[in-house]
Simulated assay, not measured.
Amino acid sequence: MNRQALSREIIDTCLEMTRLGLNQGTAGNVSARYNGGMLITPSGMPYEQMNEDCIVFVDGDGHYEAGKLPSSEWRFHHAVYQARPDLDAVVHNHAIHCSAVSILGKAIPAIHYMVAVGGTDHIPCVPYATFGTPKLAEYVQQGIQQSKAILLQHHGLIAAEKNLRKALWLAHEVEVLATWYIQLLAITNDVPVLSPQEIQVVLGKFSTYGLRIED
């Protein structure tokens, strides 16, 4: 995909993320792997005001275009691409229920078989670090090696996939899981979970399951 088309897809992903209720204002950010680096949303710009020329290219060494300022979270997007060569798109947001679970510092356990969307038996929560810092990028790099979706403590969600549509789908699925988990925690601290054996069966099935979108 050429730069103009991919930039348009990034903007459309941002707008759809808001439409789905997964983000508020300018809080989230979206990127896609491109030309040895990545294309990423700019810092602090409302999605509806973006055009293709606003999207920022950041190279593999972390250098970005003169006259443009990438999202303050570009470091952890870069860290995802370094850690996971199999993933080409990253969606980050402050979805309400994912953020609530992250404030509790909890991973989302195997409360439902859809937890396998991340590729493991839970959705991890990485430790807190100030937004935009190398330390947060370090935590993200560690967490994303476990799961394609991770919570950031006191912050929000990262979902990474082979393309933007899959990444947004993953983010939405994890927000549903987080919604169930928050509601269950309001009833009991002893939330039932699936057995490790069953999750392994589900993970095997998930090798051919999911959103049927071409890479």
Rank of each mutant, 00 (worst) to 15 (best):
6 L>Y: 00
9 E>M: 01
13 T>P: 02
13 T>G: 03
14 C>N: 10
14 C>R: 10
16 E>W: 02
20 L>G: 00
21 G>S: 09
22 L>S: 00
26 T>A: 05
28 G>W: 00
31 S>G: 08
32 A>I: 03
34 Y>D: 03
37 G>D: 08
43 S>R: 00
44 G>Y: 01
45 M>H: 09
47 Y>R: 05
51 N>R: 09
52 E>N: 04
55 I>C: 13
56 V>A: 10
60 G>C: 07
63 H>S: 13
68 K>S: 03
72 S>I: 02
73 E>N: 09
74 W>V: 07
77 H>N: 14
78 H>C: 10
80 V>H: 11
82 Q>P: 05
84 R>D: 11
86 D>M: 09
95 A>L: 14
96 I>F: 12
97 H>G: 01
98 C>R: 08
102 S>D: 15
103 I>A: 15
107 A>H: 15
111 I>M: 15
112 H>A: 15
113 Y>K: 13
116 A>R: 12
116 A>V: 09
120 T>E: 13
124 P>W: 04
124 P>K: 04
125 C>Q: 04
129 A>L: 06
136 L>C: 02
142 Q>F: 01
146 Q>Y: 03
146 Q>H: 03
149 A>K: 04
149 A>H: 04
150 I>H: 00
153 Q>D: 03
154 H>K: 03
158 I>H: 09
168 L>A: 00
172 H>P: 00
172 H>T: 06
173 E>V: 02
174 V>K: 12
174 V>T: 10
174 V>F: 10
176 V>G: 08
176 V>I: 14
187 I>D: 07
194 L>M: 09
198 E>A: 11
204 G>I: 09
204 G>K: 14
213 I>W: 08
213 I>A: 07
215 D>Y: 10
